[in-house]
Amino acid sequence: MFDILVENLTKRFGDFCAVDHISFTVGHGEIFGLLGPNGAGKSTLIRMMTTLIPPTDGTVRINGCDVVRDPDGVRRAIGVIPQALTSDLDLTAVENMRIFAKLYGITGAAARPVIDGLLEAVDLVPWRDKPLKIFSGGMRRRLEIARGLVHAPKIFFLDEPTTGLDPVSRTAVWEMLAKLRKERDLTILMTTHYMDEADKLCDRIAIVDHGKLVALDSPLKLKASVPGRNVIEVSFAAPPPGWSGVLQQLPEVAKVESVDHVYRIGSHNGPATTLAMMEAARDANTAILSLSVQSTTLDDVFVHFTGHQLRDALQAPTHERMVRPGR
């Protein structure tokens, strides 16, 4: 049995299709990532999986329970960390934890060891009686992770757990999640728009764009699916006509794409292709303005499958930000 089973899941807001017939499964103990830009539909997906909004179509089964027919069964099996920070600033770490323990019917003597253990796991023991208003964003996020685990859920959902955190805090959150997964035998589903995060943390990644699932595999296999092991990004001052064709003929080249005078060359052997390209440029008398050679990243995977860059998509406007943040 899969811990998470999503089949043809669809959500429409009026005419707008935020999630479009998405299917995937997540096995026990996996860390599964939903990677996509703002507005891709990640939060909407997570909200349907966690019983917050009803699906327009399709089914979700969490730990064997259907989200529509047995929402309480789902709720008992899951811990959820929403995108927005929702812990109370005026309350202390322990108070925040205790209130959530109560929501699951865990009180007093039963709650104490659970809360102490979790605060230890997220490295917040010295801060247990301090109000959250003095916490940094990273500490708050860690507390919320602990809070989401008070009832020892089997499956843990996190919506953009590190968005807005500084690099050091992000690394701390990653380590914590990896450790918690192992110690507590968790299945984790998280969303992110950071490629490095997905790459580092997730066993498998589903790339989502405009509500559609465009690719799904382990980070290694996803990267391998992009033609070439390296990506050469190069811009020329005045490329002669038919330049793309010339580049295509260089040794080890898998694929050439171009936007204006910038070319992206997928290569099975970056250094060899680069040397050959520089010679070709000299022969054609065109100056190279900039040049970079990189290993394939998930960004290249994203470009490969969607035709645009994740960092551009990140800047696309999203509506309704004001009224309902945390989307």
């Binding site: 929403p82 929702t86 959530f100 929501l103 699951y104 945390g326």
Partner: peptide, 14 residues
């Protein structure tokens, strides 16, 4: 509600 606090309640079996 608009800060997402209610989401925290709604995902529990309350």
């Amino acid at each position: 509600k608009s800060r997402g606090l209610h989401e925290g309640y709604l995902v529990t079996p309350i």
